[in-house]
């Protein structure tokens, strides 16, 4: 379950952001996970909740925004939503494409309480 490693990285980023911005309690972490990644959202949320126990991040909501897969065909230059198990162009059938979106694994924003 590599989601533990992913959750650990989110915790690291959160701690840095909290320290740099004087946040004393974290209430929300919004992340973006692409459709074409090897990340299972439920497993990640489970790992995150376990990991945050007894930390200033405990109780924070992990909002996972899933970004759909979007590709561009290099032959006909059409853009299309690929199927995860078939990335070929549905417009012209070409198997030559670039992924425009769907590989994201990003911490988008962090919300927390600050004194003053």
């Amino acid at each position: 379950m590599h989601e533990v490693g992913i959750a650990d990285s989110i915790m690291g980023i959160t701690k840095d952001v909290a320290r740099e911005n004087g946040l004393t309690r974290i209430t929300n972490i919004t992340i973006q996970i692409g459709q074409f990644t090897a990340i299972e959202a439920d497993a990640l949320d489970f790992a995150f909740q376990l990991m945050t126990k007894d930390t200033p991040v405990e109780g924070a909501e992990l909002v996972i925004e899933k970004t759909p897969l979007l590709l561009r065909c290099k032959k006909c230059e059409g853009e299309y939503s690929g199927e995860i198990d078939n990335l070929s162009c549905p417009l012209c059938g070409a198997e030559d494409y670039m992924i425009l979106q769907g590989r994201e694994m990003v911490v988008k924003s962090i919300s927390g309480e600050k004194i003053g």
Partner: peptide, 19 residues
């Protein structure tokens, strides 16, 4: 007492940036 306020920080950091 000290009051607290909620702040949202835009981050946009790759989760596996350290790796």
């Amino acid at each position: 007492g000290k009051s607290t306020k909620t702040q949202t920080i835009p981050v946009k950091t790759r989760i596996l940036s350290e790796n």
